[in-house]
């Protein structure tokens, strides 16, 4: 799933300092699961803003809502006719949701309440580890299901580099060396041949905004203005 981290409170407070009526909008999907932007986090942020502004004698009117998803039009539509009552929106969705919300209500400033931190697994409650950079060129078939783009600090395709340190990465003893792990797992599977050949230079696909249209689907025609 997509994981995110709540922005520092001071930063959020500064974004909305000129506004007197603000909607805090959460998202009920990824950011809710990773405890950054679901219903509960919306309630906490709204309470924080309320208290901080009242203590500064600059009270603020707040709305709070949590949409099922902010990356789908049908859920954003639930705010049609209501978002307009606010001077600004703080969205706790991932960067995707924040932008889609901002696109839906182009006259209203939309601010990010979280920093989106990647595509991660749930190791335990509150503990997430990044696993994918969505490069668009998956090589996991040859790397024993361990992503070198994400988990090697240098994103090497022909590792390990000379900095691997008893199975750890040179950047941090706590960070496993992805290529050490790739080697060990492939060896265990008797598949070291997978990495004996040189992996050629990557043909990067994530350098332009990507649009994905699945087979059998077409881009709908622009809605008439």
């Amino acid at each position: 799933m997509i994981v995110a981290k709540r922005k520092p409170f001071d930063e959020i407070l500064r974004m909305i300092e000129s506004h007197r009526k603000v909607l805090v909008a959460g998202c009920g999907t990824c950011v809710a699961v990773c405890l950054a932007g679901g219903e509960k986090e919306v309630a906490v942020l709204a309470a924080e803003i309320d208290m901080a502004r009242r203590l500064k004698h600059e009270p603020i009117e707040l709305g709070q809502t949590t949409l099922e998803r902010q990356c789908d039009r049908e859920y954003l539509a639930q705010l049609d006719g209501r978002a307009e009552a606010y001077e600004a929106i703080v969205s706790l969705a991932c960067g995707v949701g924040i932008q889609f919300l901002a696109e839906r209500f182009p006259k209203i400033p939309v601010y990010p309440g979280v920093d989106t931190c990647g595509l991660a697994v749930n190791q335990d409650v509150g503990w997430y580890e990044e696993r994918c950079r969505s490069c668009g060129r998956c090589v996991l078939d040859r790397t024993a299901g361990i992503c070198p783009v994400t988990l090697c600090a240098k994103g090497l395709y022909n590792g390990p580099c000379g900095g691997t340190n008893r199975g750890s990465c040179e950047i941090d003893p706590e960070q496993p060396c992805a290529w050490y792990a790739i080697h060990e797992r492939l060896k265990g599977q008797g598949r070291l041949d997978c990495i004996r050949a040189i992996t050629p230079a990557q043909e990067w696909r994530d350098t332009v905004p990507r649009t994905l249209i699945q087979p059998g689907y077409r881009k709908p025609e622009k809605a008439k203005a």
Partner: peptide, 14 residues
Amino acid sequence: KGVFDLDSIQLIRM
């Protein structure tokens, strides 16, 4: 930001 567009082996080849 580390670039690492190529790794050392790909650089040799280039």
